[in-house]
């Protein structure tokens, strides 16, 4: 791993932490404010790619584990990882990796803006919602003895908000791609 990759990874972890400190985003047409940190998985995958993005999340989880309050609302410590929602936290790492993998394959710097935004949106939906929900739900179902389908249906409450976040993340990722492209490209 090059020093530049290491630095990009650490800087993105720092950005994710700051997104948890700044005031939540309020949109005119949505009643609940959106915590910017919850878009981190989508942003990391779409902006710095699969490998560095997943490492940025591993670093974040390491910081949670050693007792630093790096999650939004000053949450942190092993208690956060030990809860029934631990599967979602593991899902952040895999979800970022998958988001990055999809984005690296379908988004090109030569494409038009609309196609790039659509590509990032798709990558965010697959990795940031699909993978994260899947891993979180499997863990939840195993630990509670609840049926998989019942546990999965509990996610439905968060789906509209998360689709909206995928849209915001796609717009931001496209703006970064124009201003300072970092996403590795695979054929």
């Amino acid at each position: 791993m090059s020093t530049r990759d290491l630095v990009l990874t650490a800087l993105f972890t720092a950005i994710i932490i700051v997104l948890g400190i700044i005031p939540p985003i309020t949109l005119a047409f949505v009643p609940v404010p959106i915590t910017a940190q919850s878009m981190g998985v989508m942003l990391a995958g779409c902006i710095i790619g699969a490998k560095r993005g997943a490492l940025a999340y591993l670093l974040l989880i390491l910081m949670v584990a050693v007792g630093l309050p790096v999650l939004s609302g000053g949450r942190g410590g092993l208690a956060v990882l030990a809860g029934p929602t631990g599967g979602y936290i593991a899902g952040w790492v895999v979800g970022t990796f998958v988001t990055g993998l999809v984005a690296e394959r379908i988004v090109r710097e030569t494409q038009g803006g609309a196609r790039q935004i659509a590509g990032f949106f798709l990558a965010s939906i697959i990795g940031g919602i699909g993978v994260v929900y899947l891993m979180g739900t499997i863990w939840l179902a195993i630990n509670t003895g609840m049926g998989f389908v019942a546990a999965l249906s509990a996610n439905a409450v968060f789906l509209p908000g998360d689709i909206l976040k995928a849209g915001i993340a796609a717009l931001a990722a496209r703006a970064v791609l124009v201003g300072y492209p970092l996403l590795p490209q695979r054929s």
Partner: peptide, 22 residues
């Protein structure tokens, strides 16, 4: 002041430092 508008500049400004730090 819309946080949404500040997301991209914040990320670009931060990541641009990566080469210098490395």
């Amino acid at each position: 002041v819309r946080p949404l508008k500040m997301l991209a500049p914040l990320i670009i400004l931060t990541l641009k430092d990566a080469d210098m730090i490395a």
